[in-house]
Amino acid sequence: MHRPNYLAVFWMFARNSLIRDMTFRTNYIIEVIFGVSWALMNLGFYTLIYRLMYADGDGHANIAGWSQYQFFVFIATTILVNSLVEGFFMANAEELSELTRTGGLDFALLKPIDTQFLLSLQRVNWSAVPKLILALALLAYSIPRIDGLTLSAIQFLLYPLYIVLGTLILYSVMIGLAATSIWLGRNQSLYDFWFYITNFSRYPMEIYEGTFGSPLRFVFTYMIPILVVINVPAATLAKPLSATNWPLAAFAVFATVASLAVSRWIFQRALMSYRSASS
């Protein structure tokens, strides 16, 4: 059988989605403003918190070892990874449960291309692009303001790599969750569940400590590796390279491969039990 050119197909998806987004331009603009204001508000919130911590007069302010601008790098990383996930996968994962319910999944199965590829990437959400730019601007603003940090070339190389790995881990969680909608017939609270799970990843992992924090940190680092997603790339860029970080950085590579494999397995299993509703 002839193997489709996946890159060309993806290019077509991206092009079609862009045309679609530009057709409903007002909607696109609203989505952009929404996404950007949300990110800015989050930034405003932490600016207020750091302002308070400075105000108590002891002259230092940090959240679990993250100074203000280091934390801004952390937030920028969060925005970056999330906009990549939203841009490529979010709309598709949401669509999956709808396709299962309506029986539209039949048509996806019939197409001569890998079903997971098709269902994961057929819609590219271009409204995530301005958020991406915002994140990069925030990085450019914050990095020079971190006290006593000199970055080496290797950190600039590792950062994008770990951004991609983090995005892939989140993708795995998302597609794994979405696949459960094939089993359940319908999974309306998918987005909620996604939000609540990934909520844990949006804070520095150092805050999870103590009797309850440590087990939580362990579970979300090694069982469901969502704490790795933002923390590893953010620490790569916001903190000096140190030998103590290497085990976690190496684990992040392993975690990405493992989550992709597990999610692929879940997806295939879910497809097997698809019963083709209402078609």
Binding site: I63, S189, F193, Y196
Partner: peptide
């Protein structure tokens, strides 16, 4: 299920604010 899950973000809030107050010298803001 939905109602119970709504409390999950509370957990991170508790940890976040514990970390924030750890940096404050007098324990109030």
């Amino acid at each position: 299920l939905g109602t119970t899950m709504r409390f999950l973000p509370m957990i991170t809030q508790i940890f976040l604010w514990t970390a924030v107050f750890a940096s404050s010298s007098n324990g109030t803001m």
